[in-house]
Simulated assay, not measured.
Amino acid sequence: MRHAESVTFGGSGLDRAAEIRGDVPALAAAMQDPAARTVVLWRGKPLVQGIEALDLVRLPLDHPLLAEARHAPVLLGREDGAARFAHDISGWAPADLDTASLGNFVDPSEQVHPAAPEARFAELRRIMNQLGPRDAELAATAKAIHGWHASHGFCARCGAASEVHQAGWQRVCPACGAHHFPRTDPVVIMLITHGNSVLLGRSPGWPQGMYSCLAGFIEPGETVEAAVRREVFEEAGIRVGAVRYLASQPWAFPASLMIGCQGFAESADINIDPVEIEDARWVSREDIAAAFAGRNPEILPARRGAIAHFLLHNWLADTLD
C-alpha cells in the first residue's frame, strides 16, 4: 500500500535517539540542553492546546507543572537535535474531577492544571485526528511507554520490584537479573471483502450503530495470515482465502500494533459467535459511502484516526494498492 504510513500515529520519522538511552553522560547533557522539552500525561491523557487543529504541548524541563511527576521522565527521541521526554503526573488530583466521565467509551472530559492554564489534558482516542503526524507519534509513544511502566512494576520471573533503566525503555530486576522490555501486542484487523461488500461487526458496549472491521490478537506460533483466517471464522463463521498485508498502526490503548490486512471471503453466510461479537453484516460499498457521509442511519462508521476508518476509506477510493 503506497501511502500506508499516512495512517494516524505513523510516518512522522521521529528520531528515537536509541543510541543514548544507556549513555548516562549523554542523557545528562540532553536534559541540561535549554532546547530540551517534555510532553506531559495525566492518566494517559496528553497535554494539548488549540481549538480545531491541536498542538501537543512541549514544556521546558524546569516548568513548575513537572513538580507533580513522581518518576523520572522517559526519553522519546529528538526533534531538531534536541531531546524530547515524557513526564507522567497521574498522581495529581484535579479539584473539580468528574470521575463519572472517566468510564465512558470515549472520555469527553478535559482537565486544566493551574500551572498551565492555557492547555488541557484530553483523551487521546478522542483528539487523535486533530494532531499532526509528529505530535500524534509522540503522544502515542508517551502513552504506551508510561502505560507499560504503570502495569509492569514487578519482575515476571520472580515477583520482585523492578527498576527503570535505559531512559525508560527497559526494566531490570535487582533480585534475579531479568531484563524486561516494553510490551507490544500484535493484533490483526481485517478488511474482509466479498464482491462489492465488506464484512463489519460490532462488540457489546459500543455506541449504538457503530460498526468496524473485525480484529483479534495473534496467538503464539501463528502467522499474520493464519490469524486473519482464524479470527474471521471464529467471530463470523466466514472462511477466508487469500490474505495480503496493507498497513499497520501503533495503538496505545493500551499496547497494541494493529496489522491491517485484506482478506477475500470464500463464502458469504454469516454465523456469529455471540461471545465474541454482538453482530456482523455484509455492507455494500454504496452503504459504506453513505455512512461516511452521515446518510446511513443504521451504521456509524469507525472513528476517524483509527486504522479501520483508514482501510475502509481507501477501499472506497480504490487506493489499497
Rank of each mutant, 00 (worst) to 15 (best):
N104M: 15
G11N: 01
D80E: 09
L56V: 04
W169S: 07
D23L: 11
H63D: 10
F253L: 13
A302H: 08
F105V: 15
P220A: 15
R285G: 12
D107S: 13
F292T: 05
R295C: 09
A72V: 06
G11C: 05
L75R: 05
E234H: 04
D269I: 01
L59I: 01
L59Y: 05
D279W: 05
N129I: 11
L76V: 07
A115V: 07
A35Q: 15
V224N: 07
C261E: 02
L54V: 03
T223V: 00
P60K: 07
S109R: 15
E68I: 03
A82D: 14
G44S: 04
W206K: 14
F154V: 09
A28L: 15
T319E: 14
V224D: 00
P60H: 06
A290Y: 13
A306D: 06
V48D: 13
Y245N: 04
A95W: 06
A95K: 12
A136D: 11
E278C: 06
A28M: 14
L138Q: 11
V240T: 04
Y211W: 08
L312M: 09
I127T: 05
W282Q: 10
F310R: 04
D62I: 11
S284I: 02
A280K: 07
M1I: 10
Y245E: 08
A161Q: 06
V243M: 01
P73K: 14
F264W: 08
A136W: 10
S197P: 02
R281F: 03
V164R: 06
P254Y: 08
R157Q: 12
S256H: 12
F154C: 08
F181A: 02
A142G: 11
L76K: 13
Q170S: 04
E68Q: 09
A306V: 05
V112F: 06
L320S: 08
A100F: 06
A140W: 04
E123F: 07
F121R: 04
I189D: 02
R229V: 02
A317I: 12
G44M: 06
H313T: 13
V24K: 14
T193E: 04
T223M: 00
I299Q: 04
G195Q: 03
E276Q: 14
E231N: 15
C176K: 09
P60L: 07
D287R: 15
E222R: 01
H63P: 04
V106G: 13
G147H: 09
E68A: 14
I145Q: 14
A291S: 13
I145M: 11
I272A: 08
A150H: 03
A29T: 12
V39D: 07
G159H: 14
Q49Y: 03
W282G: 07
A18E: 02
G22Y: 03
A93G: 13
G81K: 13
L257P: 03
G305L: 08
A139H: 09
Q130Y: 12
D62W: 14
N196C: 02
R229S: 02
T99F: 13
A150K: 02
A53N: 15
A82T: 14
H146S: 10
F233I: 02
R202P: 00
L191T: 03
R157Y: 07
C213D: 05
Q32Y: 05
A29C: 09
A242I: 02
W315T: 09
A215N: 13
I189L: 10
M258C: 06
H71Q: 14
V57D: 00
G263N: 00
